[in-house]
Design a protein around this nucleic acid. Sequence first.
DNA 1: GTACATCTGGACTGATTGATCTATAATTAT
DNA 2: ATAATTATAGATCAATCAGTCCAGATGTAC
Lengths: 191, 191
Amino acid sequence: MGRPRQFVPAEALRDALAVFWEKGYQATSLDDLTAAMHLSRSSFYACFGSKHAVMMAAVELYANELFARLVALAASSIPAVESIHAVLAAIAEVDAGPHGCFFVNSVTELAPHDAALAAFSQHHVARTGALVIGLLERAGFSPETAHTRAAALLALVMGTITLRKAGLPVAELQAILSQAQLLLADTTSAA
Amino acid sequence: MGRPRQFVPAEALRDALAVFWEKGYQATSLDDLTAAMHLSRSSFYACFGSKHAVMMAAVELYANELFARLVALAASSIPAVESIHAVLAAIAEVDAGPHGCFFVNSVTELAPHDAALAAFSQHHVARTGALVIGLLERAGFSPETAHTRAAALLALVMGTITLRKAGLPVAELQAILSQAQLLLADTTSAA
DNA sequence: GTACATCTGGACTGATTGATCTATAATTAT
DNA sequence: ATAATTATAGATCAATCAGTCCAGATGTAC
């Protein structure tokens, strides 16, 4: 029954993710997209529906894979504090090139005007926050303290990502990330 | 000699800034711009040259005014640590609406592909960092410690801004900012 | 090998992009 | 008033936008 699809949607989506990541959503034209995906316009629309749908799928692919990596890191048997540092480093991807975090880029560019993306970004931030909170509780923090500390840690990492785009050298970015230890200090011992 | 300009360029630029801030650079069309600036296309091009030139001018206007505000806060006679909190709060502008920081938005959208903006953003981050470093030294930190702490504080603030766009409630954002105190802790006293 | 189903490239759509230009209106200095 | 100067509005430009559509190539099932 009919000719089967000549491409693997998942692979094409990964190519789309790469272009969106490099150029941003608005700056990526359909010609850019179809060229990178090695797809004709007809195949593109038949399979994916619209530019926006591909963008959403790409963001979700990126975020879901990142989150899965974080879950794996969090589940490892190493001490909770070390897991936290590993998780933060994974989010920052400080050495991932000049285009920063695709999730941060997409949220910044689209979230205020795109309800679908805004909803997903809220979900993703919430689950990532919950993961870090869990690690902090495992490290001995009370639930309330863990909550605010986790948010601050995420902010630190996301800010690091933005600072990379602003041109800070990688060495400085790593120095920033190492300051996360200060947010992991136990204040019950000191004054 | 000749008819004088019927508009104040500085005011028109401020209108342009507002549109760029709300919609982003790519998503703002020339019609959007000229409508918001109450300018004809001809006047627009005669006075400003190009869409990109207006964008650069808008970013610089925004950043320069913000920086001037920070300098004023830093120069006040209140204790250095309080000045730092005031500076961070001013950058975060947590209550400034859903469109975040115009500087962060612009860097995220354009810096990797726009050499002019990249250069300016580097300059602005450097001077802001220097300002925070100065405050930290005034608070008693050594130059090296002040350097890394300042970068971390900026990252925390910029991350807070991004998290707002991701949908975090303002109360949480303020809780994050208050965690800056942990980055201001003097680690020489403890172990 | 034939009939059917679906994918494929590329032409095409109307709308919109950033930017230019012309003809006119407005304001100045004399 | 007159002449010189410049801003203005709006028509216009080629290029490009996201999205549609069709003719034909390519594959499967029988």
